[in-house]
Amino acid sequence: MIKKQTAKILAFRYKILALILVILAGGLVLLPKYQKNEGIKPEQLLANAISLERYIATDQIAHKLINQDPSFILVDVREEASFKKYSLPNAINIPLKKILDAESGAFLNQNQFDVVFFSNDNFEADQAWMLCNRLDYKNLRVLKGGINSWFKTIINPPKPTEDMPEEAHNLYTARKAASMFFGVAYPDQVQTDPLEKTQTAPKQIITVKKKKKAAEGGC
């Protein structure tokens, strides 16, 4: 008798449980689907976009290059032809249209190096920066002014006039030194030993691929 009653109660419970299960499973079907927002949120993107960290000046890059700072990689986002013609030392070429390729990801999506994008001016580099930021890649920078600015400031720095403040003169000397490092000869400096251009071997960039999943599963 007791057994029968418990069986009855249990049977009722099972029906409720089965119903809950069906409702839960049905909920998955009925829930409104939305496009998963891959990458970072718009607010975060805006915060990154207006951050002062976004741009890096040519002087800083020159300084880092001269000191052989290993902490960054230069990424040229122009076409391959322009890259071959002229580029910054040790830069690697990832044209803008290839920026989402898998092999590009190995360079761009890592935590070891700062990635500095540049193009002829800011535009393409900024686009690359935006795309990669959206994918939540870290440590992205843009070379302010691109190669044009590089030429104007480092390779061919404007000579300050006498009435300019001292900082301008200091800056000019620093830039001139830098440009000499990058192989520009000045007539007034020729008597010093002819700069033996130490053609440094292209920097080997070893990227550690972000491990997606190490699990070797199963039994």
Partner: peptide
């Protein structure tokens, strides 16, 4: 996947 899970659970309940 959602429809599959739904049908899968109904199959399971019937099986029980």
């Amino acid at each position: 996947p959602y429809w599959f899970i739904f049908i899968f659970s109904i199959i399971a309940i019937v099986a029980f």
